[in-house]
Computed example of a mutant assay.
Amino acid sequence: MSARVLAFVGSLRAASHNRQLAETAVKLSPEGLDIDLYEGIADVPFYNEDIDNPENLPATVAKLREAAASAEAFLLFTPEYNGTMPAVLKNVIDWLSRPYGAGSMTGKPVVVVGTAFGQYGGVWAHDEARKAAGIAGGAVLEDLKLAIPGSVTRFADTHPADDAEVVTLVTDLLDKLSAQLKTSA
């Protein structure tokens, strides 16, 4: 039986390097690990407690929570925008943190990875995403990290799936995630 991992990409751009990195993870997913790249976070409204109830809950939020509830773990792919994670990714975390103490992220493993133009590959954004996911109740796997620097030049003419070093790094990370999910099952 495969462990279902739900992946969110914090960039909405169609040709985003983080989206390409997420697609690479889907492609390289080891046997026993089923990575589902979630589509539609752009349609999720900003978190608002006034609409977070059965009478007003947007269908896009219900779909998001349903997908997250059936996941066994999460992969967050984030670029770095002005030193932090994009609002769209933070919004997903906010919605999944509710209801307080019982959100669909609660207790589930979370891994944050990504690529950014800077020399550190977006580590500030990754740190912020790990912090938010942990406060939201996720079991952040601090020992599983991947930050790839220089995305604009590194991936200008090369898809991450065609970069041998990236393939090795992503494969290693996914193998470790798979092993951790098997031992915690």
Rank of each mutant, 00 (worst) to 15 (best):
G138V: 00
Y120R: 12
G137H: 07
A3G: 08
Y120A: 10
R4T: 13
S16N: 03
A15R: 14
A67R: 13
A133E: 01
V166R: 09
L21M: 08
R13P: 04
F8D: 04
P86E: 01
L6D: 14
T171V: 00
V170M: 10
A73D: 08
L89A: 03
T158E: 07
R130C: 02
G107P: 02
A136W: 09
D50C: 00
R4A: 10
Q20E: 12
S97G: 10
P58R: 14
D172R: 09
V111F: 08
V140T: 05
G137E: 07
T84W: 00
V61K: 05
V112N: 01
L21W: 05
A7V: 02
T84E: 01
W95L: 13
A139E: 12
T60Q: 12
F155Q: 13
T115Y: 03
P45Q: 02
D157M: 12
W124Q: 14
D127F: 09
E128A: 15
G138N: 01
D94Y: 02
L6C: 15
G114E: 06
N18E: 03
T183N: 14
D175N: 13
F46A: 07
G10Q: 11
A147W: 03
L169K: 12
N56F: 07
G118C: 07
I93M: 08
L33H: 08
A136I: 03
S29W: 05
K182F: 01
E49Q: 06
A67Y: 01
D52P: 02
W95D: 08
E142D: 13
L6K: 15
A15C: 06
F8C: 06
D94Q: 01
T106C: 07
A133H: 02
H159D: 15
V123G: 02
L146Y: 10
L169C: 02
L173R: 04
K63A: 14
L75D: 03
F77M: 02
W124L: 15
T158H: 13
V152G: 04
V26K: 05
V167M: 11
L21P: 03
L12G: 11
R65M: 09
A22G: 11
E72Q: 14
N53S: 00
T183Q: 15
V166A: 10
E23T: 03
D175P: 00
A139W: 12
R130Y: 01
D43R: 13
K108I: 02
Q180T: 09
N18K: 14
G83E: 10
P86I: 02
V167A: 10
A129V: 06
S97D: 05
N48A: 15
D36V: 15
E49H: 05
Y81W: 14
D162M: 11
G40T: 04
D157L: 13
A179R: 10
A42K: 08
A3H: 15
S151N: 11
I135Y: 11
E128G: 05
H126M: 14
P109I: 12
